[in-house]
């Protein structure tokens, strides 16, 4: 194993720890907004995971996974944020 292999392994460990911590926040998050933030960050970290997989497998195909995950993650975040905002408006309308 070369230095790079060890570094990639360490990177995997750190990124997976980050995703795990975000998952804890996703589970315990007191409000919906906390959960949206945690999901958003998990997607960004999965992009990093895709980059690390490309390095480990020595195959650039995993980079496409990372790009697509970035696109889908942004769309998911926008949709969830819009849902959160619309939910406030709709519930206010129902109350009034």
């Amino acid at each position: 194993m070369t230095v790079l292999d060890y570094a990639v392994l360490l990177g995997f460990v750190l990124v997976i720890l980050g995703v795990t911590l975000a998952t804890i926040r996703l589970v315990i998050g007191p409000t919906l907004a906390d959960r949206i933030v945690a999901l958003d960050m998990m997607t960004v970290q999965l992009v990093a995971f895709g980059g690390l997989a490309a390095l480990q497998a020595r195959s650039a195909a995993f980079l496409d996974v990372a790009v697509v995950l970035a696109l889908v993650g942004f769309l998911a975040t926008v949709c969830l944020a819009r849902y959160l905002e619309r939910r406030i408006l709709l519930s206010a309308e129902e109350l009034a």
Binding site: V3, L4, Y6, A7, V8, L10, G11, F12, V13, L14, V15, L17, G18, V19, T20, L21, A22, R25, V37, A38, M41, V44, Q45, A48, G51, L52, L55
Partner: peptide, 18 residues
């Protein structure tokens, strides 16, 4: 290797912060 480890540390810090 340096970039990978630095990126991993920042990802971990982000998870810790969240």
């Amino acid at each position: 290797s340096l970039f990978v480890v630095a990126g991993g540390i920042f990802c971990f810090a982000a998870g810790m912060g969240v």
